[in-house]
Design a protein around this nucleic acid. Structure first.
Lengths: 224, 224
DNA sequence: TAGATTGTTAATCGATTAACAATC
DNA sequence: TAGATTGTTAATCGATTAACAATC
């Protein structure tokens, strides 16, 4: 049994990852009082092909007007809806280190549908204090509160070695989705949604491409 | 002209994004004194197919031994080399807010080949102070220092509206690669490497999948 | 040797792109 | 109307997966 399920039908993942970019761009455009936007415009601004933009937008169910383009307000609304940003999702954050604190402090999350309602840490120094108005609770209370408050999202910002046990604990308690920042692959039941934001992953891509570029540039210089 | 270049030949991007996961796993394994590792083992731990693991590893140039698998030390070395982690890449960070500070404080970056050598901010309150031993300099010195120190990587953690001008400034000054955390698409010359780590992008995927799952679960419950 | 595991070559699958008719 | 732009259907492309021979 090697086959692994990719996505539960629905929207292709690459499309899903482009949608936030569309929203960011369109919000900027909205403030200029524009009423319509064409796939060409979006494609140009985001370095995409216009046909790809149209395909992506089609998935949200919106229908454009020939010659005019897409109704800007309606488009933003349907993109936000597709990403479920019009519902505020409650989340617990576990691990109040530097990164955890930064995330707690990122107020803009609420406009993206995320509401961090409490944070947890093992360190007695931290417990009881507040970060940005969010109280830090002891990890011993984590499972109980997940059950009682029916929280769906867990944000894991603990060190790599603690991530797996924490994941198991919160899944057991009823968490449906994990946003994982620890540099480790979490093994959980396959109906649990895991979204990894691993800085080291991004960084690897960057350093590899940079090395390739520098090498190429130096060869080109050498050939001159 | 709609076509956009994807990657400069070389390693497929999906493969590139899996490599750090292999390294993280293998390092853990290394501490158990294992000498060899099979593609099956890796696949099982990371929920991948073993053939995919073998394809990925092949790209690093490593050759496995039938029946035994891959030499663990050698594999880690060649993966690190492929990601250019064996060279330390100097970087400047611009925008010392919560996220910027968190990144500066993330000491582990050095093991991933990144060396943040200075940070920049506009806020006179911050300039002159230190975060984790890194001095915060005024943005006015940014371009000059990039030129003088021949720094290749710029990490952008400024607010969305400042990101584009900063990107232009540092590219002009000679930056070759940008790690962008601002929720905006940067328009730069196409030979500049841009790696986006946009939290809102990950978050969108998460909230969408969660909504789909909850909907599905409730339908299933309803049908019982 | 027998059996596990690699690595190559071919098939499949899914996303992107192209072509073009429909429409405002 | 003419022309720009959408949306559908088909072609292409690249990554994943399957099949299987080679090898230790």
């Amino acid at each position: 049994m090697e086959k692994v399920e990719k996505h539960l039908g629905g929207i292709p993942e690459p499309t899903l990852r482009r949608l936030p970019k569309y929203i960011d761009l369109l919000k900027g455009l909205q403030s200029t009082n524009a009423k319509y936007v064409s796939s060409n415009y979006i494609a140009d601004k985001l370095n995409l092909a216009s046909i790809q933009v149209r395909k992506d937008l089609a998935i949200t169910g919106i229908i454009g007007k020939a010659k005019l383009g897409f109704d800007l307000d309606e488009l933003i609304r349907s993109l936000n809806h597709t990403l479920n940003r019009d519902n505020l999702n409650d989340a617990f954050l576990i691990g109040v280190g530097r990164l955890g604190s930064a995330l707690i402090g990122y107020r803009a999350f609420s406009t993206y549908g995320l509401n961090i309602v409490a944070a947890f840490d093992n360190d007695p120094e931290k417990v009881g204090k507040q970060v940005n108005g969010i109280e830090i609770l002891p990890v011993t209370k984590l499972a109980g509160l997940i059950k009682r408050m029916k929280v769906n999202i867990g944000i894991i910002t603990v060190p790599a070695e603690s991530a797996q046990p924490i994941a198991e604990e919160i899944v057991e308690a009823g968490i449906n989705a994990i946003w994982n920042f620890a540099p480790i692959h979490l093994k959980v039941a396959k109906d649990v949604i895991v979204e990894n934001t691993q800085l080291t992953q991004s960084l690897g891509v960057l350093t590899h491409k940079l090395a390739a570029k520098l090498k190429k540039d130096s060869i080109m210089t050498f050939n001159k």
